[in-house]
């Protein structure tokens, strides 16, 4: 096992251990921080798999938004004291057996694929441009022959390539974004609609009781009243 595999294995073991701690820890704050560790480990594995853009997005969205949201709600509402809030009848055995069953099924399904070494991402030279990719001249006819960045002197030293190599191409922002916009533009737009609907849905969910003076159950007002009474 060379040093690269060793690094990936160590990160994977750390990620699995912290994922176990997410499920098993009694304090919800600990679980949230172990969830953060798990997500960071997954981001490192993304980076190892040449998915650099996804690694950054994972850190931004998961570690930056989701975990912060969970920790924020935990600290504000105080749900962390619950810990193990009871089980299903014989719930522990059922949960463990179902989980192990899924693990075995998945291992069986993936079994044929294990042991296959991961080939390095191919280096595309202009002579062997892969099938399905437009040739550089088709891609950018306007730039052929023109001096790149003639109007931007500070960029003149940066060599502009119409066809980057596949090694640096794979998983870059440019490639993922180009594929997303050209092949899945409808999904791209639907995501923005979904985010907008989520914003409005959250506001509608949490608006009602605040306006009703009869219910004193809103956390903000009750906490404010208790602090003012003290």
């Amino acid at each position: 096992m060379d040093i690269q595999n060793l690094f990936a294995t160590v990160i994977a073991a750390m990620t699995l251990a912290s994922a176990l701690m997410v499920v098993l820890s009694r304090n919800a704050i600990y679980a949230a921080f172990f969830l953060l560790l798990t997500l960071l480990g997954v981001a490192v594995e993304y980076a190892i798999l040449n998915a650099h853009f996804l690694a950054v997005i994972q850190i931004l969205v998961y570690a930056g938004a989701v975990v912060v949201l969970i920790v924020f709600v935990l600290m504000m509402m105080g749900f962390g004291r619950g810990g193990f809030q009871g089980f299903l009848p014989a719930g522990r055995q059922i949960a463990l057996s179902v989980g192990l069953l899924v693990l075995l099924l998945g291992a069986g399904g993936l079994g044929g694929l294990l042991g296959e070494p991961l080939r390095p991402a191919p280096i595309a030279s202009p002579s062997n441009t892969p099938v399905g990719q437009p040739s550089p001249k088709v891609l950018r006819p306007a730039l052929e022959g023109a001096k790149p960045h003639a109007h931007l002197p500070f960029l003149a030293s940066a060599e502009i390539r119409t066809q980057p190599t596949a090694q640096e191409n794979f998983g870059s922002v440019r490639t993922v974004g180009a594929y997303f916009i050209t092949h899945n533009a409808l999904i791209f737009e639907l995501i923005s609609v979904l985010l907008l609907m989520a914003i409005m849905g959250v506001m509608v969910l949490l608006r009602g009781q605040q306006a009703d003076p009869n219910t004193n159950a809103t956390v903000g007002s009750s906490r404010g009243a208790s602090s003012s009474s003290v």
């Binding site: 990936a8 994922a19 499920v23 798990t38 899924v102 693990l103 998945g106 042991g115 296959e116 070494p117």
Partner: peptide
């Protein structure tokens, strides 16, 4: 070079732990 097994097994393990 990396082998696929580490990542596949990690994904499978994360899914199973989450299900549990």
């Amino acid at each position: 070079m990396y082998s696929l097994d580490i990542f596949l097994l990690l994904g499978l393990g994360l899914f199973s732990i989450g299900l549990i």
